[in-house]
Amino acid sequence: MAKHAITLNINGQQMDVAVDSRELLIHTLRDRLRLTGAHIGCETSHCGACTVDIDGASVKSCTVLALQAQGADIRTVEGLAGSEGLHPIQEGFFEEHGLQCGFCTPGMLLRAWRLLQDNPNPTEDEIRHGMAGNLCRCTGYQNIIRAVQHASEKMQSGETAAAE
């Protein structure tokens, strides 16, 4: 079967790529575009390691056809850090020991990023429910919650500073 030409806007950059109809977005990202930040964990939409942001919503990219992302704005973990260094969410995970082996971290970071876009000052309960689609087998989650809280505070104080 013939390949399909699609255009993806990934981390602000337009990328044209030819994909098979049965190709999953995570494989396009990792194997064709060499964006290997998002990981393949369970492949059954449970673990969240493949979480990326598509058109303003967190999505498990192992359960989306690449074709379905035609024209979409996608953000992956490669798009988080800026020229000034780590994004506050990455800094939060670093400072609060929010990871151990790091396999789940790219998905955690992208999910936390969207959570804080939607709700800049979440309660602990809101963080726990908001992060419920991401599994971590190392940390026991406590430090991940702290990392998100750290990022929330940092991002808000950054906004205050910018406003002043």
């Binding site: 979480t51 999910r111 908001g130 419920a132």
Partner: peptide, 9 residues
Amino acid sequence: IADPQVRNR
């Protein structure tokens, strides 16, 4: 039902 990411799709 499911989790936040799955509920988005």
